[in-house]
Amino acid sequence: MTGALETMGLGKQYGDLWALRDCTLTVPSGRVAALVGPNGAGKSTLLQLASGLNYPSAGVVRVFGLSPRQDPGLVLPRIGFLSQDRPLYRGFTVAEMLTMGKKLNPRWDDALARRRLQHLGIPLKRKAGKLSGGQQSQLALVMALAKRPEFLLLDEPVATFDPLARREFLSMLLEATVEDGLTVLLSSHIINDLERMCDYIIILSAARLTLVGDISEVLDRHKLLISVRRDTDGLEHLHNVVQVTHTERQTTVLARTNGHIWDPSWEVHDVSLEDIVLAYLGQPQRDVPTVTMDRADEEVLR
């Protein structure tokens, strides 16, 4: 299994500040991967490094085994990228934007682009700069999709969409993953819907990777343990404790388990993905071991 995206010790430094550091991960092909984390956690930086817009200060980034900076001619036709600021040539008409796509991309699917735009009710003769914010995002996305990429990198794709547009866009995206075996990496602030559309998660916090893995595996292994107030030494011996809260009477632990919890004094509960993500984001700024939870036996779609 080759990953659509592989990084090893990847880092990007601006002056004294690391925007991303020590990032080692794999996004297997055919996955819809969510990239979550607060603003400034390094999400955009990772996406830019993968698209070749930016170059690493440390480590290695590979897309389909190729370097986006050294072999841009081989990588660029295979990826689609949506930048957070949705750049469009404001003076171009929508039709001219499509002409640009056609002229610049050998795999351009003009019929797909026109069909999508018609469906969205975006007139071809309108200037891109005159479209509403949501329509501009839609157009930028259609441009990225009509490239017919194998790997789509989206920075906050649904941030400016209303719920209906959001649902429509996700349907279109997920349909493309079934049809073309497309791999998707999308960053998002919105966690509550991730479980539905994504099957892989990458959590970044303060420029570092805190969790990578298959979502169902992540859900299976994370448990909320509740007990009368006690220390967690015994637990930490066998499992990874992510977050501990003590009240006067009670101890609550979010643990990444490495097997069954045999100690009957712990009351074991399932945790939602949202709670897991929040726990990893809320972690204190100590060195967090990066956990790669990649289910080996999980078959890739198709």
């Binding site: 990826i79 689609g80 750049p87 469009l88 991309n105």
Partner: peptide, 16 residues
Amino acid sequence: EQGTFRLAWTQSVTRS
């Protein structure tokens, strides 16, 4: 200024 180079440089044509 408008950041459209990000669009241009992620089409299939290389930056060079």
